[in-house]
Design a protein around this nucleic acid. Structure first.
Lengths: 134, 134
DNA sequence: ATTCATGCAAAGCTTTTGCATACAC
DNA sequence: GTGTATGCAAAAGCTTTGCATGAAT
């Protein structure tokens, strides 16, 4: 992740490194405000956190998610995929949804709508949390 | 829409009626702040607009959409469906979702993830705007 | 008569911006 | 040395809330 930034010609600053390392440790949805709060004692300003998240999103390493108050990000390193968000443990499970997408594109074509981007997210319970609840 | 509110036992107040009528005239994404601004001269307060949108969403007559700054609603009167949002004219085109739905269920079952809700939106150009651009 | 919705203004929360300083290249 | 990123604080958005008033049932 750091390497990718460097390779893209971005400056490798300490704050950026701190942010990226904190993100890597995260398994669930990333809340910018909470992250700022966590990183502030380490000398990283709020604005820098927001700016870095923005940067990573532009490079496609992060995606915005819209569940739970509409203000989060999640890691997004592999190819194109979507996310299952567990509402109990907060975990984010990447999922290949090509079947769903194909269906959509078929519909769009039928309606002569040119689809540029799309958003597809699921919320529910992961396998582990289903067991706990039962 | 008004009838549905009344049938649900909600009070039929003038501000609510004004909001609902304004919504019906809308073909695109509804921006709460802009709507408040429009309706303020007619004596409807900001808070009432937000509260009414919230109310309508709870009854499923409105859905939140997440494109363009992540803060909008769109009309949602028919059965279950999704939306194609035209980024040029702002129009919202509903799309029947039964095929997509089946795909989603299949996927969830395969992953043993219990899907409670999902978000699926598309942004692009509607047929009319594609022609204009060309 | 009661209860619920309203408008206003203020507060809350999240995100962005201006600017001088410090750091990476 | 130059140009960009940073931290801070302030500003800007958007949404919610407290409260007294007014309207609907």
């Amino acid at each position: 992740m750091l390497r990718r930034l460097a390779d893209s010609g971005e400056r490798m600053t300490e704050p950026r490194e701190i942010v990226v390392r904190a993100l890597s440790a995260e398994t669930g949805v990333i809340n910018p405000e909470a992250l700022s709060y966590d990183l502030h004692p380490r000398g990283v300003g709020r604005a820098t956190v927001y700016r870095t998240l923005d940067l990573l999103e532009r490079y496609g390493m992060l995606t915005r998610v819209h569940v739970e108050g509409c203000h989060g990000y999640t890691l997004c390193d592999e190819g194109h995929h979507h996310h299952l968000l567990c509402s109990a443990c907060g975990r984010v499970v990447p999922v290949d949804a090509t079947g769903v997408e194909a269906e959509i594109l078929r519909l769009a074509e039928q309606l002569k709508f040119r689809v540029d981007t799309h958003t597809l997210e699921f919320a529910g319970l992961c396998q582990a949390c289903q067991k706990k609840t039962r």
